[in-house]
């Protein structure tokens, strides 16, 4: 197993591996998300208070969940890149950032659209919403810093440091609803006697979260091919690849 993993760390092998796997994961995510949407938009009963308005949950919660998960992936990859100077690790961070920013943007917009009918406002400086907005600025800051230097290595290192500094924001987002008295919904209990959502409501939610994860896996691999090509463009294997293509 370790040999396979070690081989995977070599860019040319990784490039081929990513190219083979990404399309399969892409189509799989399409089916999983379609199943989740069918369950969430059609099968699930309306909420007794929010009616059909609650169905925004099936896109708001998965994207908010992914916005934090992707940042963790980005921060861990940044740390590995800084400590072991692995170019591929920095490529993972650079590939993850736009996806993380996109999930954060979706979470903010869908949350805002959900807030208007339920709270009477599109935005409020609530602990959860504000820390999620800061997360969006961290992603944008990472991307700007990553491309701000002529030498890609400098950009990688500078943005990796920002990613590590920004980690503190993730527990703040997660626990904001517990620490402060927030307008945003508190942590929902899914299982056990005090479960607040019936299975017909939370099963599609889990399917959507899995669908978003598979989607992320598919398209971070695709972006990684681009990041690897950019970082390795002067190497022999890329020249061979270009000559062949």
């Amino acid at each position: 197993m370790f040999i396979w993993f070690h081989k995977l760390a070599s860019p040319p092998y990784f490039y081929k591996f990513a190219g083979m796997l990404a399309p399969w994961l892409g189509w799989l995510s399409l089916f999983v998300i379609a199943a989740g949407l069918y369950g969430g938009l059609w099968l699930a009963p309306p909420d007794y208070q929010q009616g059909d308005g609650f169905r925004i949950i099936y896109v708001h919660v998965p994207s908010a969940w992914m916005s934090m998960l992707v940042y963790m992936v980005m921060a861990v990859a940044a740390a590995i890149g800084l400590i072991w100077r692995m170019k591929l690790a920095h490529a993972v961070s650079a590939a993850a950032a736009p996806l993380g920013a996109s999930f954060t943007f979706i979470a903010l917009v869908t949350g805002s659209l959900w807030g208007k009918p339920m709270w009477g406002t599109y935005w409020v400086w609530d602990a959860r919403l504000t820390s999620e907005l800061i997360l969006l600025f961290l992603y944008v800051g990472y991307m700007a810093l990553n491309h701000a230097f002529e030498d890609r290595r400098t950009g990688d290192r500078a943005s990796a440091i920002l990613a590590l500094v920004g980690i503190v924001n993730i527990p703040i987002i997660h626990y904001s609803v517990k620490w402060w008295n927030t307008l945003h919904q508190g942590p929902t209990v899914f299982f056990g006697p005090r479960a607040e959502m019936p299975p017909s409501m939370y099963i599609p939610l889990f399917i959507m979260i899995i669908g978003f994860m598979v989607y992320f896996a598919a398209f971070i691999l695709k972006r990684l091919q681009v990041e690897v090509l950019q970082r390795e463009r002067n190497t022999a294997w890329v020249r061979a690849l270009v000559a062949k293509s």
């Binding site: 009616g51 059909d52 996109s102 398209f219």
Partner: peptide, 26 residues
């Protein structure tokens, strides 16, 4: 959507546009 169409569908529209862009762009 039980009267919430003006909120639910723009929410799903945004998600669709952003996810499609991230699928096509790379």
């Amino acid at each position: 959507m039980g009267g919430y169409a003006v909120y639910v569908w723009p929410a799903y529209g945004t998600a669709l546009v952003v996810l499609l862009a991230n699928a096509i762009w790379p």
